[in-house]
Amino acid sequence: MLYLKFLAMHIKVQLQNRKSFIIMTIGQALMAFTGVFVVLVIMDPQQVVMGFNRHEVLVGAAVVMVSFSLAECFGRGFDTFPVLLSNGQFDRFMLRPQNIIYQIFTSTMDFTRLGRVLVALIVLFTSLQQVEISSYWLLISMIVSGMIVFVCLFIIYGALCFFTTESLEFMNILTDGAREFGKVPFSFYGKRILNFLTYVVPLACFQYYPMLVLLGKEGSSIYAYYPMFALVFILPSYGIWKVGIKHYRSTGS
């Protein structure tokens, strides 16, 4: 499979300087730990906030962290997308017969982000020892759905760059910001924010709602299917990307 060849190539390239790779991976892990440390500090082990104790909050935080880190690891190409536009390299992508989104995904990968994934998984499995969950399959679907939602946000970010040719910092509110806000269940931020993260940007569809079912909280059993509803976000994301492509003007034109 061609994608696996690209994957192996990026791994080989990044391991050329192993010391640098290890240091950067450790740095990413430490950054992830600081986020977890905040939750550990502000919440006592027996404290319950809006129906969630500390271990349950950490489960939700870990889901968001794993999802975001995996998306950032394999979708790094869209993070550097403004550079492709400004230096004219995107023209090469347009000339190739392969799908453009596929090319961007395979152009850049950052495996140092796996340091964050490792910390998040440790936090997740440690927290799961203290709580009972209804289904591991639901937990996996939350992580996979979350990764797809973040990838869609990266694609939207890339599409908007067609109109500005510069990076759009406000999109970080929905990507890096969501990673930070996701340290606690999204319901903590109020009904309006929760509705926005449900019907506009479906971040709550893979974190808060299915977590109610996962942890046996009160709520409709249909919440277990919300990770699948979040996948509908692929359609508007791809639509925005297509509009951006039509707006693109080559640097040579």
Rank of each mutant, 00 (worst) to 15 (best):
Y3H: 11
V49L: 13
G146T: 05
L153K: 10
V57A: 02
Y3T: 15
L212N: 11
K217W: 06
G115Q: 04
H55D: 08
V144A: 03
P185D: 02
D91E: 13
I133R: 03
L197M: 14
V232T: 12
Q14T: 00
P202R: 05
S237H: 11
Y3A: 15
Y199K: 03
F111I: 03
S250F: 10
N87M: 04
W241Y: 10
V131M: 04
V39R: 11
G51V: 10
K246Y: 07
I143V: 06
C73Q: 09
G27Y: 12
I42N: 00
L121Q: 02
F33P: 00
A62N: 01
I22F: 15
G182A: 02
I234E: 07
Y157T: 03
T198F: 07
E132T: 15
G115V: 02
L121T: 02
F188C: 00
S237C: 01
S221W: 11
G77R: 08
Y157H: 11
G244M: 03
M1C: 14
S67L: 00
F90P: 04
I222F: 12
L174Y: 10
L114Y: 03
S237N: 05
H247V: 02
A120H: 01
V41Q: 11
M171Y: 01
P45Y: 00
L30H: 06
F196G: 00
F37N: 00
L215F: 07
V36Q: 07
G252L: 14
H247Y: 13
F37R: 07
L214Q: 06
F162L: 12
G77H: 12
R249P: 06
Q89E: 15
L194G: 05
I222P: 01
V49F: 15
G27A: 09
I240S: 02
Y238G: 10
M228A: 15
I193V: 14
L212I: 12
E72V: 14
L212M: 14
G27F: 13
C161L: 09
P227R: 04
N195G: 03
S141I: 08
A32F: 15
L124V: 06
F170L: 11
P97T: 08
V83I: 15
V49R: 06
E180W: 11
Y223A: 12
A178K: 01
Q103M: 12
A204Q: 01
F229Q: 07
P185V: 00
V151R: 00
S221C: 05
L231V: 11
I11N: 02
M109G: 08
V144Q: 01
Q130P: 07
C161P: 02
L121E: 00
V201I: 14
V39D: 04
V131L: 03
I101A: 05
V151Q: 09
V151L: 12
